[in-house]
Design a protein around this nucleic acid. Structure first.
Lengths: 222, 222
DNA sequence: TAGATTGTTAATCGATTAACAATC
DNA sequence: TAGATTGTTAATCGATTAACAATC
């Protein structure tokens, strides 16, 4: 697989392609053109072909793309076939919700263990994932090959836990605390899930639309 | 406030500015230049000034920006002072976690009610928010001024619930189901929270780094 | 074969960065 | 006043779109 420097925009579109391809596959469609895919995703066919061409040649002239073949290519580009293992730290509300609802396996990630400080949780299992004491975190990381950490601890301890994670070989953090974990240029990879950012953009778009309506109404009055 | 067409990139940066300004304010800093702000956020001073200039003139030559003043301006741009009211549909794991952990108030949004079909939940309250029967949803929307809906129902009923929401005056949906709710060009505003997209990008970035390391290692071997 | 559709090169468009006059 | 820093215009850079030869 090619691995040139690919822009962030392209990378962020890959999971959307994957979801669409999964959907097509479920509906028994096994062939699609960049034109049709563009229609369904609201993108131009050009952009789609450009995006794919960052990674290789997955289509066939006059035919288009084989849905399942393309799906596998994109899954592979995203690293879903690399068997990454993850731990989750902080089995509170959001941590628990993730363990219960979110399918790590569907992203090709194995959730190997969870950690918490709550006595009543320690030693139990949830959906086959053991919940261990946070005190064991460091030792566990030294003895297991874990690439990813899902950070769901309260803000107050986030920095401290991050330190333990980074010093013990974690490559990347999926960050559900509402904190900016890293300085610009930090070597650790962090993906932030900021609920508030998301809701605030929504609030912006609604406000924009409201203002447009008000403006239009006042134009009609005149 | 100016309201020219502002690019998506700018809008997505606004909540980050807000968070940073909150942090500065907490630390008792009441003045900042675009240069310093850029340092802290990993952006260029130019970009920051350009971003702000979409909405007005919030700084002062030779001085910079007043932290709390700028914070209020951005909060207002985001619509945080408009008193939007929201309902939440589907008090399952993720819905419950949001009600428990997420501060709607911090985004200037009031969570007015939640809806579920589970008998044991209906009629109860959680953190002051009443949980009502999903059957009452339509009537409730007709009698209350609700702008936003937080969608946390299972995939299977998502389309159906969305229909009820849009037909009864909801402006925007904060979508936690892993479904694409809208066709391109739909009039309803949707903000998707796709956990899997987020984790898959993380997986990509890790894979990219791994490949770089492998490549470097093989160069060193020669 | 003729039609369809790719992968890629070139053209356009938009976003970021640099520069600088204005001014606090 | 001199120094600092804004807001804005111009220059650059990068991403998207269009065009088209290659080819299934």
């Amino acid at each position: 697989m090619k691995r040139v420097k690919v822009s962030n925009n392209v990378i962020r579109r890959l999971p959307r392609y994957l979801r669409k391809l999964d959907e097509l596959q479920e509906n028994g469609i096994n062939r699609i053109s960049s034109f049709e895919l563009g229609q369904q995703l609201g993108l131009t066919p050009s952009q789609i072909r450009q995006d794919f061409s960052c990674f290789g040649e997955f289509g066939q002239q006059g035919y288009g793309y084989n849905v399942s073949g393309l799906r596998e290519q994109i899954a592979s580009i995203l690293g879903m076939d690399r068997g990454y293992r993850a731990i989750l730290v902080g089995v509170g509300n959001i941590g628990h919700a993730l363990m219960d609802n979110f399918s790590f396996a569907d992203c090709g990630v194995e959730l190997a263990a969870a950690f918490d400080i709550k006595e009543s949780l320690i030693g139990t299992e949830f959906k086959g994932v053991p919940i261990l004491a946070e005190a064991e975190l460091e030792g566990y990381l030294k003895n297991n090959d874990i690439a990813l950490a899902v950070l769901c601890v309260p803000k107050e301890v986030a920095v401290n836990v991050t330190k333990i994670l980074t010093e013990n070989g974690i490559e990347a953090i999926w960050n559900f605390t509402n904190m900016e974990l890293t300085e610009p240029n930090s070597p650790i990879i962090v993906e932030n899930v900021h609920f508030s950012d998301s809701l605030l953009s929504l609030s912006y778009f609604v406000s924009e639309r409201m203002d447009e309506r008000t403006a239009e109404a006042s134009r009609n009055e005149k």
